[in-house]
Amino acid sequence: MIEARGLKKSFGSIEALRGVSFSAPDGKVTGLLGPNGAGKSTTLRILYTVLKPDAGVATIDGDDVCASSMAVRRNIGVLPHTSGLYPNLSARENIAYYGRLLGMQGKALDMRIDELARLLDLEEVIERRAKGFSQGERTKVALARALVHKPKNLLLDEPTNGLDVMATRALRELILRLKNEGICILFSSHIMQEVAALCDEIVIIGSGQVVASGTPEALREQTGEEGLEDAFVKAIGSAEGLL
């Protein structure tokens, strides 16, 4: 369960967030939708504790992201904008590094990695070094790394970036499966179709503010538009940066 209330953040004179509030419940997929530069990544970065908000409060499973950042970090799995694997380490070593830093070890860790490799169809490449991985393989390893400690909340920053159709589909199926396990999933995207296909709740962000939120149906009703894309354009006020 992720909750954000009135998050503000400036970088120098640029106001990246101007009071962002929303909540992402457990067992649901929540999509942060918005054009490039709307503040999606900044919001996620505050939630996964690498940035501190200038104002506002955010909690994950009741823990404040600033005051109890260590507790928050134990309960989240993060897939940032770039996969950030270590090219000289194998897929298994990349995942195991995070597992160990999260306090796992020995056989339990090995078995968990085997399980994730099966789940993400990584068995063939699991012992190979990450240097030559395709974008899809990199994303899958990074996702396995994020899931190694079975987090109750998963934050994904544009996870389908650079993935081909097959990999995108596989990722979508995985997200749905994790959702059915009761995990709270929050992911950002600027691709409307992707959000429409996956999300139970949509939060539309434009210029650092939430401009609309709700289920896809509710959004269509709010804006009075037939299609979701039109609803999105109307909510943001322009088609800029949509495609």
Binding site: V78, P80, G84, Y86, G103, A142
Partner: peptide, 12 residues
């Protein structure tokens, strides 16, 4: 490399 950001989200 982009590996710092995920590293900083760990409880370390």
């Amino acid at each position: 490399r982009g590996s710092l950001e995920p590293l900083l989200t760990l409880p370390v």
